[in-house]
Simulated scan of single mutants.
Amino acid sequence: MTVRDIRLFGDPVLRTVAEPAGEPDERLEALVQDLLDTVRVPGRAGVAANQIGVATRAFAYNVDGQVGYLLDPELAEVRGEPTLFDEGCLSVPDLSFPIRRHPWARSTGRLLDGSTAEVVGEGVLAEALQHEQDHLDGRVYLQRLEPEVRREAMAAVRRSPWFLSRTP
């Protein structure tokens, strides 16, 4: 079991648009296993590959006992009026802020065996699907916050011990 360290806000890999996963091989199988091991840590709903330092289009999810992964995922459909979620992120530890997300989402992708896969969710799973897709597109949720909330969030990030310890 390999639980990988989570890259923190400010790490350039989090702003990198992830590359396609490519054909299944030992490297991709190991990445998927690391994602699944890392997302199984209690309190985690999702982990994108770039959050563990790998700019590959893959993520794992763990919501209400439903654990899985998608390679080359696409957010295929969202439904419902965006509503406020109090959202956090492993890459922005100990902070959460209100963000508008659709209450229903469907993501499509593939599995290691080459088969297509679909994940449909409401509530927290819908939020996680949207959140992880953003990571793969090089976005951290802070970028989606309303301007006033974003200013507050960035001030909180700059005051955070984990952020202060990263700066000279």
Rank of each mutant, 00 (worst) to 15 (best):
T2M: 09
V3C: 08
V3G: 09
V3N: 05
R4T: 14
V17R: 10
A18N: 04
P20V: 13
G22A: 15
E23D: 15
E23K: 14
P24H: 03
E26W: 11
E29T: 04
L31D: 02
V32E: 01
V32W: 09
V39T: 06
V41L: 05
G43A: 01
V47T: 09
V54I: 15
F59H: 07
V63D: 07
D64I: 12
Q66L: 12
L70Y: 14
P73Y: 11
E74K: 11
L75E: 10
E77D: 12
G80V: 05
L84N: 09
D86E: 15
S91F: 01
V92D: 02
V92Y: 00
D94P: 02
L95K: 04
A105L: 03
A105T: 06
T108H: 13
T108W: 10
R110C: 06
L111Q: 15
L111P: 05
D113T: 01
E118I: 14
A126W: 00
A128G: 11
A128N: 03
Q130K: 05
E132P: 12
Q133L: 13
Q133R: 12
D134E: 14
H135C: 07
E148N: 15
V149L: 12
A153T: 10
A153D: 03
M154N: 11
A155W: 13
S160Q: 12
S160N: 12
S160A: 15
P161N: 10
R166G: 12
R166V: 03
P168M: 09
P168V: 07
